[in-house]
Design a binder for these strands. Structure first.
Lengths: 206, 206
DNA sequence: GCATATACGCTACGACTCGTAGCGAAAGAG
DNA sequence: CTCTTTCGCTACGAGTCGTAGCGTATATGC
């Protein structure tokens, strides 16, 4: 994207332009959607020339990915003292993130592109999926030290449990927000957490 | 899409063309993605003129929705005599369908575009999502007549239960297959079904 | 101070796509 | 046979992506 390193020779790039362009991209994405977003429009919103966009990102796709990736590093695992509170907190965070139209469009576009591009797929898994799995691992560990969950019998069952929990939580929330189109209300989060808590202990025993 | 009914006056449409066009659409979608798919290319693959496409579907969006919807109509709800067996069967069916790269790319491309286009989103919900919910409804009804599940207290709680079950099952399977990229082994299906069965009875009571 | 090298804004352009229109020909219905 | 619709083909207008060329602005290295 930006040149690899250090100050080189000619006129340096406008440092503010990157942020303005990415912000303009997110704004246009929210207003017009992916299909309605045009490079000329983004350039106008950011107050730069279209050629400046292409000087920094090689294509429209790359620009949009960069614009949303900047927003995606917000998720954190809270330790609220109980498993139920932790789950509800992370579900609420995730749902809030997915309620932004620009995040929806960019995430799905990213996944769609990733099905045909193994390199991009690997990048998505490393920079988005794996970090989120660590949230599940952290939450489970905290619950185990509190005695809310039994310790894992072995490494293998623990890994399987993390996988299935992660897919269930993330998949269900994503499906509700993006496919069914229903918002994640506090009532729904509570109901879903209840549904999830019941079998959690059995899962660890395997 | 196709004319509402019966044989009319002029030259009848080529009956084979519909299937050939839809198959060509899925093929192109898997190879090129949404952005790469063009009407001219689909027409060439199907061996028809571009105008024939527009004579049968009003736009590119509608064509792709029809192509994907046709493939998802294969899903059926088996009545194997127990709720657990029924769930495992439908999950296995769904997972098998999603293991084909062609279906993966097609579904994700469609969902991605749907987030950007509210009209397309509505079409997806009507012609793909709602029909699939019938599987959940049928499975629940069968389990209720067998006495495995209590009858619904009222229409409203039944609808809410169907929604949350559908989001959980479809979302989890989709997430595992498309995002995590792990295959749905028999062990995984069994474990997921166990996770699902525990709270099902409570859900109906609401 | 001066040459060098890059970034910037602007305009124009080629290539491509969507979706439409018009044409002659084909193929069934009545 | 007549009428109606579909078919393939070609051409077109509008719009977009991404690039090229120009003159200008702003930094570094000597």
């Amino acid at each position: 994207m930006t040149p690899p390193s250090g100050p080189r020779k000619g006129r340096p790039r406008n440092a503010d332009a990157d942020g303005a362009i990415l912000a303009a991209t997110r704004e246009a994405l929210a207003e017009l959607g992916w299909g309605g977003l045009t490079m000329g429009d983004v350039a106008a919103r950011a107050g730069v020339a279209k050629t400046t966009l292409y000087r920094r990102w090689p294509s429209k796709n790359e620009l949009v990915v960069a614009a949303v990736a900047e927003q995606l590093d917000e998720l954190e695992m809270a330790d609220l003292g109980s498993l139920r509170a932790d789950i509800e907190a992370v579900v609420a965070q995730f749902a809030a993130l997915l309620s932004a139209p620009e995040t929806q469009a960019a995430l799905l576009a990213l996944f769609a592109e990733a099905t045909r591009d193994p390199l991009l797929r690997r990048r998505v898994r490393e920079s988005i999926i794996e970090p989120q799995k660590r949230l599940v691992i952290a939450g489970r560990a905290a619950a185990q030290t509190r005695g809310e969950l039994p310790m894992d019998a072995c490494e293998e069952t623990a890994s399987a449990a993390v996988d299935i929990i992660f897919d269930t939580v993330a998949g269900t929330v994503v499906h509700r927000m993006l496919v069914s189109g229903e918002p994640a209300t506090a009532e729904w989060i509570s109901a879903f957490t209840t549904l999830l808590l019941a079998p959690l202990t059995e899962l660890a025993v395997g």
